[in-house]
Computed example of a mutant assay.
Amino acid sequence: MFEAEMARQDQIRAARQEQSARTAQTNINTLLGVRDAQVGAARASASAFEDAYRAETDALRRTAEARTTIIRSTVAGWRDLGASGAATLADIEAGRRLGSLNNVPEAANQNRRLRSDEVTNLMYQGGDIAAQLRVGLAAQHDRDAAGAADRADLRRPRRRQCKGRLRAGR
């Protein structure tokens, strides 16, 4: 029995020491502003980040779906506009063809005689061409003659000038 009493006394002493250590640690933590560790705090923090991640992923998915819908509707709108433009162009072309069915196509030169004013214009144009040829040939002849004179002048000795006048024979 004595041993049982001693064991009980040892347990009481250990419990008191443990209690006093806890009290001292609590006092120090209170002075320093340290709180007791919360059980599951990391799990709660991680779940907050996971919720934020899920919300962001969901928002990005909805944005991508909205963009895809907008692009598809825009492409469909342009396709419809192109189709209506092609139909309008086909209607215009069909109307043009229907309007020209009664008209017989004319020959390019219209297979007719020249009017008197057209004959007069052609005569004036022919005269202009002849005059240009004469002037052109005369200018060519003058250039040929000048070229021959220049070549002949190169073979002659140079004349001296005195006060702007030519002196003959020197």
Rank of each mutant, 00 (worst) to 15 (best):
L31A: 15
S116R: 13
R8D: 08
A139Y: 02
A14T: 12
V39F: 10
A107N: 07
T69W: 01
I71N: 06
D128W: 04
R159S: 04
M123S: 10
W78M: 12
Y124S: 09
M6T: 01
A46Y: 03
A148V: 11
T30A: 15
A87K: 14
V34R: 14
E93I: 04
Q140R: 13
R22K: 15
R115I: 00
L114W: 07
T74Q: 05
G77W: 00
N102K: 05
A168Q: 11
F49H: 09
R96I: 08
Q125H: 13
A76C: 03
R113T: 10
A55M: 02
L89E: 10
G40A: 08
N27H: 01
T68Y: 08
R61I: 00
D51F: 06
R67N: 06
E5W: 05
A15S: 02
L122R: 15
R35N: 14
E50D: 12
L166G: 01
S73W: 02
A87R: 12
A64G: 05
R167F: 03
A41Q: 15
I92A: 09
A139R: 13
G127H: 09
A107W: 03
D91E: 13
A138F: 09
Q11F: 08
A21V: 03
W78S: 05
S20E: 15
M123N: 11
N29W: 02
H141D: 07
A41W: 02
A148Q: 11
I70L: 13
A94M: 04
A145W: 00
M123A: 14
R134A: 13
A42L: 12
R16L: 11
R165I: 11
N109F: 00
E106S: 13
R96W: 09
S20A: 15
T88L: 07
E5V: 10
G164P: 01
L101Q: 06
A149E: 13
G169L: 02
R62S: 09
R158I: 01
R35T: 07
A90L: 01
I92L: 09
E18Y: 04
R97I: 02
S47F: 06
Q11S: 11
R112D: 05
R170Y: 11
P157E: 12
T69L: 06
T69D: 03
R113F: 07
A4T: 13
P157W: 05
Q110Y: 01
D51A: 14
A7H: 10
A138E: 15
F49M: 12
I28C: 00
Q140A: 15
R67A: 06
P157H: 03
A41Y: 04
V39S: 10
G40T: 02
I92V: 14
D144I: 11
Y124L: 15
D128N: 13
S20D: 06
N102I: 05
L81P: 00
N29V: 03
N29P: 00
A64C: 04
N29L: 07
E56S: 10
A14N: 09
R112I: 09
R35A: 12
G127F: 00
T30K: 12
H141Y: 05
A21D: 10
R115E: 08
D58H: 06
G127A: 14
A37K: 06
G85P: 03
A7K: 08
R61Y: 07
V135G: 00
T23R: 08
A168Y: 04
S116H: 02
T23K: 10
T120G: 02
N103Y: 04
